[in-house]
Amino acid sequence: MALLHTVNKSPFEKNALESCIRLALKGSSILLMEDGVYGAVKGTAKSSLVAGAKGKIAVYVLGPDLDARGVSKDKLIDGVKVVDYGGFVDLVAQHSATQAWL
């Protein structure tokens, strides 16, 4: 069983997403939530972080947090999957533990 990593900080303000991706094992998952959802957007100065993790780590993003910030789903990096709160619970249940990158 692999870890679920959660990142709730903007990649433009904190290095949480960068450190998480650097230290996450292949086969683990990342859920971007709160201000962390900005890391899932393509065409930004930080898009290469998540785009570079493709094939190694499954990346999820919390839909209600995207909606709150006016980020439409067509702006997401290819391969990023949107989940709702129920999906968040499922992810927690499917992984061995959760590591929060605050």
């Binding site: 433009f12 303000e13 839909g63 209600p64 947090d65 909606d67 709150a68 006016g70 709702d84």
Partner: peptide, 23 residues
């Protein structure tokens, strides 16, 4: 400036997060 520009992004919908949409 910086992440502050996100405050002005249009289309904000906070129904799902249960917070006030102040935009």
């Amino acid at each position: 400036v910086d992440d502050g520009v996100y405050q002005l992004v249009k289309g904000q919908n906070t129904k799902g997060v249960g917070m006030k949409n102040f935009s």
